[in-house]
Design a protein around this nucleic acid. Structure first.
Length: 554
RNA sequence: GGCCCCUUGGUCAAGAGGUUAAGACAUCGCCCUUUCACGGCGGUAACGUGGGUUCAAUUCCCGCAGGGGUCACCA
């Protein structure tokens, strides 16, 4: 078989050579130790937490070392293209603060190693495929889908390994005449790699995350170029990451099983291999069983879902970081205000086993993250979220930004900040009573043991004595002072010891006011709330409760 | 089924050949407290299994089991 002749026949329009490619995409000029990483999603337009999880490893590795983090679009599967897929990808990563240094953008490519969209790189792949054919390391295969299915069936029956290898590699050693006959007839074909591997042999390999391992060589003649002239993932990965000079390939562990193919291809082409980091997959519980997060089955893990639910970007990022490097939590406690980029991230600290997605933990991380934010930031983020998902609420917040921010600063800024909410979507319920349109009092939460007459008396008395100019201490002292006139006590210990001796405690007294003013029994510091609402509204609300109680009499 | 990866409490996990086997979330109890949200203290709760190496193994080795992944002209 004249391989060069075959190569020319197969790719007559490919005039460039491997050497020319190497010259066109020279080694990057980067400082020692700088890592080049990438994410290479297929533009299905669907991103979930798992994608972000992996991308963060890439981003940290690159930017922590002064390297390059770039975006490549893997769109070789023309059947699965989705409109606006690329836009969605770009938008999501931008939102999460993962910025690319290079790669595909909506305005075209940015960087010297493009094109960064695989469908635009067909001739590049073909150049290398042609070279492989010329070396006799790749060959055309004319099998139809049906023939391959038949082979699979036979293997199943014979209990043999599946795939295109050995005697099942039917086009591997066909005569020149047979091949050219098919070509002359214009039959469609794929190009397969001629594997010299054997399942009897093992390869030693060291993964950045999983460490040393032994894997079986690949003996399959895998397809490297599909009949539409585009490469399969295996081949595109090898060529692209070589030409773009990726130093570290971070990908899900589902790729571990095809790793032998990739290593084999690098060797066949005489190319330097990148380092690999195979990340354990994010899992979820399904029917009591652990399962890999799936695009199709877990739409609730789509990143859009997080945005909708008002999960703070920072919260999601920090949660992921705790999964990625468990010592992140310790570091965060020691450095509460440092940007997470300061954390010394390491693949060595990554777990080899898949983490179960834990919504409780996420919630907790979010609460902590939000509690550390300034009122200003909380205000801005909440408005931003509400503008998209709850416009009425956004408008309400923006009516008087200073008022809104003042509300959000209650209990914020101290060493022990309040942790009332961890999501932007929870803010509305928390602040609702500060806004007339949202004020929906639940007067039935009044302490049941207080006689209605007593409550009415308290309300009308307090209307007369409420003095907003008092300091918080003075204000509370006043409450204590008036307790006895209602048969209540300000001494909580005494009250707890013998509750039957009193009509109630200062706690009950406060509760009456709280229910009147806030319309509910759970609220932040009552004094602050009253200060913010202003005397007029406080008194009005006391009156409102009075009216409600009186109306109830009928 | 073949191949590969993984295995410490409910979850995420630290850990070293000899430890009272960290910590966080969740959960339970107590305390603080004018409610709540915090905060403090404490409780329940773990090294899958069988061999081997060793004075000693949860830690090293082998087998097994369990879980996960993968076996496409998808990535």
């Amino acid at each position: 078989m004249d391989y060069q002749k075959l190569a020319d026949r197969l790719f007559p329009y490919i005039s460039e050579t491997m050497e020319m490619m190497e010259e066109k995409y020279p080694e990057r000029d980067l400082p020692e130790g700088a890592k080049v990483t990438r994410i290479a999603p297929s533009p299905t337009g669907f991103m979930h937490l798992g994608n972000l999880y992996g991308a963060m490893v890439d981003e940290r590795l690159a930017h922590q070392s002064g390297g390059i983090f770039y975006l490549r679009i893997e769109d070789t599967d023309r059947k699965r293209l989705v409109e606006n897929g690329v836009e969605t990808i770009l938008k999501v990563f931008h939102k999460f603060g993962l910025e690319f240094d290079e790669g595909a953008t909506l305005e075209g490519d940015w960087g010297n190693y493009g094109p960064y969209t695989q469908s635009e790189r067909a001739s590049i792949y073909q150049t290398y495929v042609k070279a492989l054919v010329a070396m006799g390391k790749a060959y055309p295969c004319f099998c139809t889908e049906e023939e391959l299915a038949a082979i699979h069936e036979e293997q199943e029956k014979e209990k043999e390994n599946f795939g295109y290898y050995g005697k099942y590699a039917v086009w591997r050693d066909r005569s020149e005449e047979e091949v050219y006959t098919q070509l002359d007839k214009g039959m469609p074909y794929v190009i397969r790699f001629r594997s010299e591997g054997s399942i009897e042999r093992k390869i030693r390999f060291e993964d950045q995350i999983k460490g040393k391992m032994e894997i079986t060589e690949n003996d399959q003649d895998v397809v490297i170029l599909k009949s539409d002239g585009l490469p399969t993932y295996h081949f595109a990965h090898v060529i692209d990451d070589h030409l773009m000079h990726t130093t570290h390939v971070v990908r899900g562990e589902e790729w571990l099983s095809t790793l032998p193919i990739h290593l084999q291809l690098f060797d066949a082409l005489g190319l330097k291999k990148p380092k690999y980091a195979h990340t354990a997959q994010l899992m979820k519980i399904d029917d009591g069983k652990k399962r890999k997060l799936s695009k199709r089955k877990d739409p609730e893990l789509a990143l859009d879902f997080y945005f909708q639910n008002g999960i703070p970007v920072k919260g999601a990022v920090e949660y992921l970081l705790t999964l990625l490097n468990s010592n992140f939590e310790d570091w965060r406690r020691a450095n509460p205000d440092a940007p997470y980029q300061d954390f010394p991230f390491s693949t060595k600290k990554m777990s080899g086993s898949g983490a179960l997605f834990d919504i409780d933990k996420l919630n907790d991380v979010c609460k902590n993250v939000v509690s550390r934010m300034s009122a200003e930031e909380v205000y801005e983020k909440t408005v931003q979220w509400a503008e998209e998902y709850d416009p009425d609420f956004a408008a309400l917040l923006k009516e008087d930004p200073d008022y809104s921010k003042a509300i959000l600063s209650i209990g914020r800024g101290s060493k022990k900040p309040r942790k009332d909410f961890g999501r932007w979507s929870e803010v509305k319920a928390y602040v609702s009573f500060f806004f007339e349109p949202l004020f929906a009092p639940k007067y039935e939460e009044l302490p049941a043991h207080l006689p209605k007459e007593l409550v009415l008396r308290i309300l009308s008395d307090y209307t007369k004595i409420y003095d907003p100019s008092l300091s918080q201490d003075e204000w509370f002292a006043q409450l204590k002072e008036i307790c006895p006139s209602y048969g209540m006590t300000a001494d909580m210990k005494a009250y707890k010891a013998a509750p039957q001796e009193y009509t109630g405690s200062v706690g009950d007294l406060s509760m009456v006011l709280r229910i009147a003013v806030c319309g509910r029994s759970q609220a932040p510091d009552l004094y602050s709330v009253m200060q913010l609402l202003g005397k007029e509204r406080v008194i009005h609300r006391l009156d409102q409760l009075k009216e409600w109680l009186e109306a109830e009499n009928d």
